[in-house]
Amino acid sequence: MNWAVDNLGLILDLTVAHLRQSVVPIVLGFVLSLPLGWVAWRYRLVRGPIIALTGLLYTIPSLALLILLPAVLGYSAISEPNLVIALTIYAVAILVRAVADGLDSVDDDVRQAATATGFAPFRRFWAVEFPLAGPVILAGLRVTAVSTISLATVGILIGVRNLGYLFTDGLQRRIIEEVFAGVVAVVVIALIVDLLLLLAGRALMPWTRAVTKTATKAAAGRTAAIGSAA
C-alpha cells in the first residue's frame, strides 16, 4: 500500500493510457461487428463461415498477433496502433456472434408487424431490430470490454506503456506491491467500465427493466402458489 500511495501519479497516468488503448478497440470492434453480424444473420449460407472465421481470430495468441500484424501490414510493431488493431480484432471475434445472436432473438412477428406498418428494411433495423437485439448485444459488449481491458496489458511486451508496466517492472524489481497495484487497477477499471455499460444499457433500453420486473413478479407468483399448495 505504501508503494501505491507513493506512486499514485504513475498509476493514474498508466490508467489513463490503458483506458485509451482499451476504449478505442471496443468502439471500433462494435462498429465493425454490426455489419458483419447483420450479414451473418441475414444470409444463412455465410453465417457459419463468418462466425467460425471471426471466432478463430480469438484463438491466435496475443503476442503472436502483435508480431504478425506489423510484418503483414508493414507498420511499427512497437507502437500503440499495433496494440489497438490487435485488440480490435479480438473485439470483433467476440461481438460478431453477439450481434448475430441478438438479431436472431428478435421475434419474426415483430419484424412482420414493422414491415406491415411501412418500415423500410434500413429503418426497421435501426428502429425495431437493433433495439430489441440490444440486451444480447450489450451482454457481448460487456464481455468484450472486460476482455479487452485485460488483454491490453500485453502491450508492455512490445513497448507500449500501460498498466502492464506495473507487472513487468514489479516482477523485475521484485516489488510485489507494484504488481498487486497493477492487478487491482486493471480489475477496478474493468468493473467501472462494465458498470457504465450496464447503466447505459438500462438508460437506453428502459423496456428491458419492465420485462425483468414482469418476469420477477411472475416468478414470485409461482413461488407463492407452490408455497400455498405445499
Rank of each mutant, 00 (worst) to 15 (best):
V5M: 09
D6K: 13
L8E: 03
L8H: 09
G9N: 10
G9D: 13
L10W: 08
L10R: 12
L10E: 06
I11P: 00
I11A: 04
D13F: 10
T15S: 13
V16A: 10
V16N: 05
H18Q: 08
H18T: 03
H18I: 08
L19T: 04
L19M: 15
S22D: 06
S22C: 08
V23L: 14
V23D: 01
V24Y: 02
P25C: 04
P25G: 02
I26L: 15
V27C: 03
V27T: 01
V27F: 13
G29A: 07
F30E: 00
F30I: 02
V31R: 07
L32A: 12
S33M: 04
L34A: 07
L34V: 15
L36Q: 03
L36P: 01
G37N: 01
G37I: 00
G37D: 00
W38H: 10
A40E: 01
W41N: 11
W41Q: 07
R42P: 10
R44N: 13
R44C: 06
R44S: 14
G48Q: 11
P49T: 07
P49C: 07
P49M: 09
I50L: 15
A52P: 00
A52H: 12
A52S: 15
L53H: 05
L53A: 14
G55T: 05
G55P: 07
L56I: 12
L57R: 07
I60C: 10
S62P: 10
S62R: 03
L65T: 02
L65S: 01
I67Y: 09
L68R: 06
L69A: 04
L69E: 04
L69T: 05
A71N: 09
A71W: 06
A71T: 09
V72R: 13
V72Q: 13
L73V: 11
L73Y: 15
G74T: 04
G74E: 06
Y75N: 05
A77R: 15
A77V: 12
I78M: 13
I78T: 11
S79L: 11
S79V: 03
S79Q: 11
S79K: 04
E80T: 14
E80Y: 01
P81H: 12
N82Y: 03
V84N: 00
V84Q: 00
I85L: 15
I85T: 08
A86P: 08
L87F: 09
L87M: 15
L87T: 07
T88A: 12
T88E: 06
I89L: 15
Y90I: 07
A91P: 02
A91M: 08
A93F: 13
I94Q: 09
A98R: 05
A100C: 14
A100Y: 01
A100R: 08
D101S: 11
G102P: 00
D104Y: 03
D104R: 14
S105R: 07
S105D: 03
V106I: 08
V106M: 08
D108N: 11
